[in-house]
Simulated scan of single mutants.
Amino acid sequence: MRFSISILLVLIFFKSTAQSYELPTVHLEELTFIEVKDALNNGVKSVIIPTGGTEPNGPHMVLGKHNFRVKYLAQEIALKLSDAIVAPTIAYVPEGRIDPLEGWMNLPGTIHLPEKYFMKLIEYAARSFKQHGFKDIILIGDSGGNQNGLKKVSESLNLEWKDTNVRVHYISEYYKSSSISTVLDSLETEGFNPKDFGEHAGLTHTSRLLAINKELLRVDIMETLEYNDWSIDENRRLGYGGNPSQSSVKIGIRLNNAKILDCVDQINKLKDESRK
């Protein structure tokens, strides 16, 4: 199951009171400014800002795991919302510390953006979208280090814009999807060992990317890996925890779908509740 934005074949239909409006893609960077203007005039009022990260994910998975995954899931969320487009993915996020070295910065390929700059980046992206007429600005983060900054930006801008009709929504269900635990419980009853699920780049994380694009994994390496205990600090230098060799496309689809539906539900609720 390969994800490719450039050959998206299905036209996206946006509903307005006047007519159905179609776009060739939900991705902002693949649209012209005229197409965005027309979309805004025909019922498109939501924009999703996806944030990923560039960090090690074991010897079997590319550094951009978070970016590829969040871009795909943001697309699927937008399609289900039917009134949203997707901003360019933000690949530079908090990842530790450069001096002295901390977290993933100990391993090559990691890109770190301190939280205060990450928050400014999100803030001014949101301000840009407000300027052009978007009413619901949706923040999702695929990496744990993104969550605090996204939440703070949404709270700050909502306070500033409380007398307007523009709202910024931090989607906590994206990172801590309540339905994921249900899927994991099902996997356990099917015979999978919960230890294999992993905290980072294990069975669950690997399956979710495998379901999006197999070419982003080194499957020959993945299949040879064994369980790695993430709780041991020195083991983290391997870049993964859990057991990636147990991963599958089928599991990844189940996990991704659960997350997408949880996010859509939370977004729709926040749209209503934030304006009461």
Rank of each mutant, 00 (worst) to 15 (best):
E173R: 07
R208C: 09
L184Q: 12
L157A: 09
S181T: 15
S177G: 08
Y227I: 02
L217N: 13
T206K: 02
E215V: 04
L217Q: 11
E226I: 06
V219I: 15
S154C: 08
I180T: 15
D185T: 13
V153G: 11
R218H: 13
L203C: 05
G145W: 08
S245K: 06
A201D: 10
L159I: 14
G202Y: 00
S245G: 00
I221M: 07
S207W: 01
T189D: 15
V183Q: 08
T204K: 07
E226T: 07
G198A: 07
L150T: 00
T164L: 05
H205T: 06
H200E: 00
T224Y: 03
N235T: 06
E234V: 06
F192K: 11
L216Q: 09
E160D: 14
K195S: 12
K214F: 11
T182W: 02
W161D: 13
N165C: 14
T206E: 02
Y227H: 03
N146W: 00
D196N: 12
E160Y: 12
E160N: 12
S207R: 01
D196W: 13
F197W: 13
Y240K: 02
L209D: 03
W230V: 00
L159G: 14
T204V: 08
R208H: 11
L210A: 00
V219H: 06
A211Y: 03
S143V: 07
N158D: 03
V183F: 07
S143M: 09
E173L: 05
N235Q: 07
E155S: 13
S231A: 00
N228D: 04
K152A: 09
K152P: 04
G202E: 01
L187V: 11
R237M: 09
N243G: 02
Y170I: 10
L159E: 15
L184M: 13
I221S: 05
D233M: 14
G202L: 01
